[in-house]
Amino acid sequence: MACKSMTWDGMMLVLDSCYDFCDRVGREPYFYITGSDPILHRDFWRLAEELHARGAKWCIMGNPFHLTEEVCRRMRELSAASTSSALTAPPPPRTTCSASPAASTKRCVLPAASSAAACGWRL
């Protein structure tokens, strides 16, 4: 089965609907851009530029394995508030995981974390 992604027109329809709704209820919109790694969507940067042009508050949520300092800086320039990590898939080989001796949890350090930290974000 082919993977479907939202079209640009679909994104604009959702964005306009959100603004209309927020206007009616007196709220300011805040957009969470989600999906495995939203940065990889063909229109991600176009959407980021649109959100910035509208003065929107927004962030990404997903498996941000493609965050680099350059990507984080560009997102920050386009008014992204933060990035949130949802580690729902096995980490790629470049991820370093170490077992915590005091607990049965694992602490995973993503290369993306240092890039996000360079822009003032915490993963």
Score class of each variant (00 low, 15 high):
1 M>D: 05
2 A>G: 04
2 A>Y: 02
2 A>P: 03
2 A>Q: 14
5 S>K: 03
5 S>E: 15
7 T>R: 11
7 T>D: 05
10 G>C: 12
10 G>V: 04
11 M>E: 00
11 M>L: 06
12 M>A: 05
12 M>G: 09
12 M>I: 05
13 L>T: 15
14 V>A: 15
15 L>V: 08
15 L>R: 07
17 S>N: 02
18 C>Y: 01
19 Y>Q: 03
19 Y>R: 00
20 D>T: 10
20 D>M: 14
20 D>I: 04
22 C>F: 13
22 C>W: 07
23 D>P: 03
24 R>Y: 11
27 R>A: 06
27 R>W: 12
28 E>Q: 05
29 P>T: 05
31 F>M: 08
32 Y>H: 07
32 Y>D: 13
33 I>H: 04
33 I>Y: 06
34 T>N: 02
34 T>C: 08
35 G>Y: 07
36 S>E: 10
36 S>Y: 11
37 D>T: 05
37 D>C: 09
39 I>F: 10
39 I>L: 04
40 L>E: 05
40 L>F: 03
41 H>M: 11
42 R>Y: 09
43 D>S: 04
43 D>L: 13
43 D>E: 10
43 D>P: 00
45 W>C: 02
46 R>P: 09
49 E>K: 08
49 E>S: 04
49 E>P: 06
49 E>Y: 12
51 L>F: 01
53 A>S: 15
53 A>C: 08
55 G>C: 12
56 A>W: 08
57 K>D: 06
58 W>P: 12
58 W>I: 00
58 W>Q: 06
64 P>F: 00
64 P>G: 06
64 P>M: 11
66 H>C: 13
66 H>P: 12
67 L>P: 04
67 L>Y: 07
69 E>H: 08
69 E>T: 15
70 E>I: 04
70 E>Q: 06
72 C>L: 07
73 R>G: 10
76 R>L: 10
78 L>E: 00
78 L>I: 01
78 L>C: 05
79 S>N: 03
80 A>S: 08
81 A>R: 06
82 S>A: 14
83 T>E: 08
89 A>K: 07
89 A>L: 15
93 P>L: 11
94 R>G: 06
95 T>M: 13
96 T>R: 04
97 C>V: 15
97 C>F: 08
97 C>H: 01
98 S>D: 11
98 S>M: 14
99 A>S: 13
99 A>N: 13
100 S>A: 13
100 S>P: 03
101 P>C: 14
102 A>P: 00
103 A>R: 01
106 K>G: 03
106 K>N: 10
108 C>Y: 03
108 C>D: 01
109 V>D: 10
112 A>H: 02
112 A>E: 00
113 A>H: 08
113 A>C: 00
116 A>Y: 01
117 A>T: 10
117 A>C: 09
118 A>K: 07
119 C>L: 01
120 G>P: 00
123 L>T: 06
